[in-house]
């Protein structure tokens, strides 16, 4: 399967601050790709590099197999983009916006634009300055889709939306991407948004991808255990096997219990039960905890994980 997006060891620095520190990932044609990361992890910068707005300082970046260079607008013409904040001209109406934007996209589909506006319930002649945040995001999505893009890039489009608007917007994204089969690069820090739509994800932290792949294996490879503090024997767990085959993402005391979250590095096929089989000397007090995707995400990018990574 051909790659629509390829980041290979992409580096971007602002002064002494490394925002992208060897980011590598690839997005295949037709897939919905979740780009997860905390605020400040480098997601928006990665997208600016991807769009050719900001040049990378190192590594290689390809979109549609074409090397992205700053100012290369041929790539941008094939991308539909929904920004985190909608800085549209407040004096424009959707009709005026279409008149303006269509000049930049040879593939602009006016009938689709009208159809999407109607479907999204956007008044054609109302000034954008009077639109709510949710309406503006829908308008941006309609605009991105009306360009008949080969790649849809969504940069945290639901930031600042209330839960209802957010849900509505995500439904629209899901519906439209399924309908069009367009490759989608969905950046967010909200894992539940991704859970619903993404085929594959990358989790970015500190400017590099710490996980890339499907969602299910990620959850499967992350295990959690807890024990009441009075039952814990210091040094008895995780033990030699775990030290060799797992990365401890979190080792913290919460609510009178010591909690451990571990990531199975070298044995992607291991299941929880199998893992348990490798812990024969577990004290009876240890119990397995089921983790949500959000728990996994927090464990992967949270402060404990970073402390562990620093220590290692």
């Amino acid at each position: 399967m051909s790659h629509v997006i390829e980041f290979a060891q992409v580096v971007k620095r602002f002064g002494r601050l490394s925002v992208l520190d060897g980011l590598s990932l690839s997005v295949q044609a037709g897939e919905v790709y979740g780009f997860l990361g905390r605020n400040g992890a480098g997601k928006s910068t990665a997208i600016r590099v991807l769009m050719g707005i900001t040049p990378a300082d190192g590594g290689e970046m390809r979109v549609f197999g074409e090397r992205v260079t700053p100012g290369a607008i041929s790539v941008r013409r094939r991308i539909g983009y929904v920004a985190q904040e909608q800085h549209m001209y407040p004096w424009m109406s959707p009709r005026a916006l279409s008149r303006f934007v269509r000049g930049f996209y040879p593939t602009w589909d006016e009938s689709r634009w009208r159809e999407l506006n109607e479907r999204f319930g956007l008044p054609e002649k109302q000034r954008l300055g009077t639109f709510s945040g949710g309406m503006k995001a829908k308008l941006a999505l309609a605009m991105a889709l009306a360009t008949r893009p080969e790649l849809l890039v969504l940069d945290e489009p639901t930031a600042g939306m209330d839960p209802v608007a957010r849900r509505e917007f995500l439904d629209l994204v899901r519906g439209e991407t399924e309908r069009e089969g367009v490759t989608t690069f969905f950046s967010t820090h909200l894992i539940d948004e991704i859970e619903a739509v993404a085929d594959r994800i990358a989790i970015v932290e500190g400017g590099r991808a710490i996980y890339e792949g499907a969602l299910a294996p990620l959850v499967a490879r992350t295990v959690g255990y807890s024990i009441a503090m009075q039952d814990d024997v210091p040094g008895s767990f995780p033990g030699p096997f775990a030290a060799e085959n797992m990365r401890v993402l979190e080792d913290a005391v919460r609510g009178g219990r010591r909690r451990l979250v571990m990531f199975l590095d070298s044995a992607p096929s291991l299941q929880h039960s199998a893992a348990s089989a490798h812990f024969p000397h577990l004290n009876p007090g240890w119990s397995h905890e089921s983790l949500s995707l959000e728990d996994v995400f927090v464990a992967l990018v949270g402060p404990h994980a970073r402390t562990a990574a620093t220590a290692s």
Binding site: I53, S74, E85, H87, Y89
Partner: peptide, 15 residues
């Protein structure tokens, strides 16, 4: 000041 420059910046046009 209003940030609309960012909107234009994301359009396929030279900077």
């Amino acid at each position: 000041l209003s940030g609309t420059r960012l909107f234009v910046e994301a359009l396929p046009v030279g900077s």
